[in-house]
Design a protein around this nucleic acid. Structure first.
Length: 287
DNA sequence: ATCGTCTCCTGTTCGC
DNA sequence: TGCGAACAGGAGACGA
């Protein structure tokens, strides 16, 4: 479940191993991996051949390879996507979806994705809010790691919604990069129940929530960065990565680190939300 | 315009 | 033992 810190580790790996290299040949092994590239696989592979990768960039959970010529390969890892840098000739992964070979005959880039929620697409770069972004993600808000992230504005945006606070926190047009795991962690740190109505959040609570989300992603990024293997860029299953210390997410039945009460799991949007019944009491207004 | 629900996908785990 | 259900969940599409 890659969220911002995981995607950032991947971006750094791509910057180190792919930037500056020229694409020679691209193979699409599963059409669903490029479903957001509307012109299809042939167009995708044809237009990539011969272009140079200038840089690897990221906003929220999206990352993209900036290409010579004003275009970019936009990527989202979805639930299970991985970007692997592998020597040519290494056995294909079971869920290999896209292979990118380079003119220098060095290691190839592989997009591997079991559940195929992720994907790649070629996209035009556009200027939005003083930033060059792939056009299809121009609506994605700045994330807390962005040098120009405005925490106060993000807190106001969250409070301006009329919904449950966790729904707002997961809305990538308000603050990007937060997924189910970090949302639960940020809410735990802020002592807020996920169903708290946004309109009842005080300004201080809004700011504290944004600060908590920033902190939890920051510390996770530091932990993830240290487990990064220079030989390849990996997202899932690497030790020290998802084994990061969590206070709420996935902790059902375990004692709250603050008060000792057993963490509970509740259904939320066809998935789960974890919280401490004592530190994060359910708001009276709902159920 | 805004908000909530549905859907896509596959491997693993769990209950009967 | 076998099989179906539940679960993992990001984000676009769509309906109200």
């Amino acid at each position: 479940m890659p969220e911002l810190p995981e995607v950032e580790v991947v971006r750094a790996g791509l910057e180190a191993h792919v930037a500056g290299r020229t694409v020679s040949k691209v193979e699409v092994l599963h059409p669903r991996a490029i479903r957001r590239h509307v012109l299809g696989a042939e167009d995708f592979t044809g237009r990539l051949a011969g272009v140079r990768v200038d840089a690897a960039r990221r906003r929220g959970k999206y990352l993209w390879l900036e290409l010579s010529g004003g275009e970019a390969v936009l990527a989202h890892l979805g639930m299970s996507g991985q970007m692997l840098v592998q020597p040519e000739g290494a056995p294909d992964e079971k869920h290999l979806r896209v292979r990118v070979r380079f003119a220098d005959d060095g290691p190839e880039l592989r997009f591997v994705d079991q559940r195929t929620f992720g994907g790649l697409a070629l996209d035009e770069l556009v200027t939005t809010d003083g930033e060059q972004l792939p056009g299809t993600i121009a609506h994605i808000a700045r994330d807390p790691m962005d040098p120009r992230f405005d925490a106060a504005a993000a807190a106001r945006a969250l409070r301006s919604r009329r919904t449950e606070v966790k729904r707002a926190l997961l809305d990538q047009t308000l603050v990007s990069g937060v997924g189910n795991i970090y949302a639960d962690e940020a809410l735990w740190r802020s002592k807020l129940h996920w169903a708290r109505p946004t309109e009842k959040l005080t300004a201080a609570q809004g700011r504290a929530l944004v600060a908590a989300a920033t902190e939890v992603m920051d510390s996770s990024l530091q932990a993830g960065g240290t487990s990064f293997d220079a030989l390849y860029v990996n997202v899932n299953g690497q030790s020290g990565y998802f084994a990061r210390s969590l206070d709420a997410y996935g902790q059902e039945g375990l004692p709250c680190r603050r008060c000792g009460t057993a963490i509970r799991r509740e259904p939320f949007m066809n998935r789960s939300s974890y919280s401490c019944p004592r530190c994060q009491p359910r708001p009276r207004s709902s159920r």
